[in-house]
Design a binder for these strands. Structure first.
Lengths: 233, 233
DNA sequence: ACGCCCTTGTGAAAGTACGCACAAAGTAGG
DNA sequence: CCTACTTTGTGCGTACTTTCACAAGGGCGT
């Protein structure tokens, strides 16, 4: 059954909306810094690069925070979106893998303007362990369980080589981490209660290549064509 | 109008499918290296972390490359997906911004197992210009136009600070680049003929935080609740 | 050559997402 | 107070995506 959940408001915000809220938030924070007090859906949408109707529908999922004829109060909207995204509390993050990517992440100042605290950096390479990166001492990966437990890490970032990723992920999960951000080019296996998001540099490039090829196809005369192996060897 | 496009095959592959093809490709390349000859949609789907019906429908957009009762020939499928993604030709890439992230990208060996050639690295900081990174000498950003032209760069990667991103993007576009991969946390403005893809580290973390909060909400008793500013000041 | 079994390819249904267009609601000016 | 103007919030049609379920096709053993 469960005809109506007993919750006051239907908290079912669409995934697509959730993915755009951080974009709106960043745009709004920029406006707030510049002293803008209110903004219309039209203006904010144009800055965020989306359709204004979509923006309004997205925001309507959080509640009716706009004023008709005027627009949205910038500061208030920043607060509401932050709250919805869970940025009014601090999340503790640990990064595994201190190569160039791990360093880039560790130094990514402010990390989305507050909300995230990097508590630890891990690496398996003894030559790196002990180094100071972004104000933190790199720890050996074997201390992962201890540190995750004592620091209360809830988000694990994997910036290791592909072969180590699943192993590190398992250790994160075992230690109690329930969200993982994966930069390694592998599909991670996790229990259903754990969220994984993947960022894959080469996948993005390949998608661009696909569209790039399309453009070239359209402009070139249809003669050439691909050398198509009709035979399977 | 335009009831049927005059093209031989309907080349309209859904965006959602294109985004998954690189994942399948990587899984298949791994199998090929391990000597696997054929694979069923069920098995490949499970490795790629998707539903098997979805996998089959995705592949069906490329053509009927499977054999009923048997599965797909791994090598053949690798070739077909590569071809569709445009990886049978080489794409020339330039990276702007040689901080930690730019270095990580430059050193990302093989870059999706061939298909992409990094032709140049640019930076505005004279202390970095002249350094050798990943076998390339870092050039000053002011040589961007010359190099993009002479090297035939078609994909530009932006790994600069946010403030410089739009400027660098404009220069890329002006120099003839038609695809941009943006790692800076800004929304880029480009002409319609240019493709932009965005990778944003902090957005991904914020999405994770949202879901993390959800989990916490469900488990905690409904008492606490947020301190909700009912008044708009 | 036949029939069984396996796996693909796809029609159809269900679920999401998008964007137009407009009524509702608020401001501002007289 | 009333009218004109602005901008939100949303109902609705359309398009895309996912998933189910099964008929069609092909290999393999006998």
């Amino acid at each position: 059954m469960t005809p109506r959940s007993p919750r006051p408001r239907d908290r079912g915000i669409p995934e697509a909306t959730v993915a755009r809220l951080p974009v709106y938030l960043r745009a709004l924070q920029g406006m707030a810094e510049r002293g803008t007090l209110t903004v219309s859906s039209e203006d904010l949408a144009s800055i965020a690069g989306v359709n204004s109707a979509k923006l309004r529908k997205d925001l309507s999922h959080l509640g009716s925070y706009g004023t008709r004829g005027v627009g949205y109060d910038v500061d208030y909207l920043v607060y509401q979106i932050s709250r919805e995204l869970g940025l009014t509390q601090d999340w503790t993050v640990a990064i595994a893998g201190v190569g160039n990517l791990g360093r880039a992440l560790a130094n990514y100042g402010g990390f989305g303007t507050r909300g995230f605290r990097i508590a630890a950096l891990f690496d398996a390479d003894r030559r790196v362990v002990g180094d100071e990166v972004a104000g933190l001492v790199v720890r050996h990966i074997d201390t992962l369980e201890d540190v995750v437990g004592s620091e209360g890490v809830s988000i694990g970032v994997i910036a290791t080589p592909a072969v180590s990723a699943q192993g590190v992920c398992d250790r994160f999960v075992e230690a109690g981490v329930t969200s993982v951000l994966n930069f390694a080019p592998v599909v991670l296996n996790v229990p259903p209660a754990v969220d994984v998001r993947k960022v894959d540099l080469s996948i993005e490039l390949q998608i661009l290549a696909f569209h790039e090829q399309r453009k070239a196809d359209g402009q070139a005369p249809p003669e050439a064509g691909w050398i198509d192996a009709t035979e399977k060897t």
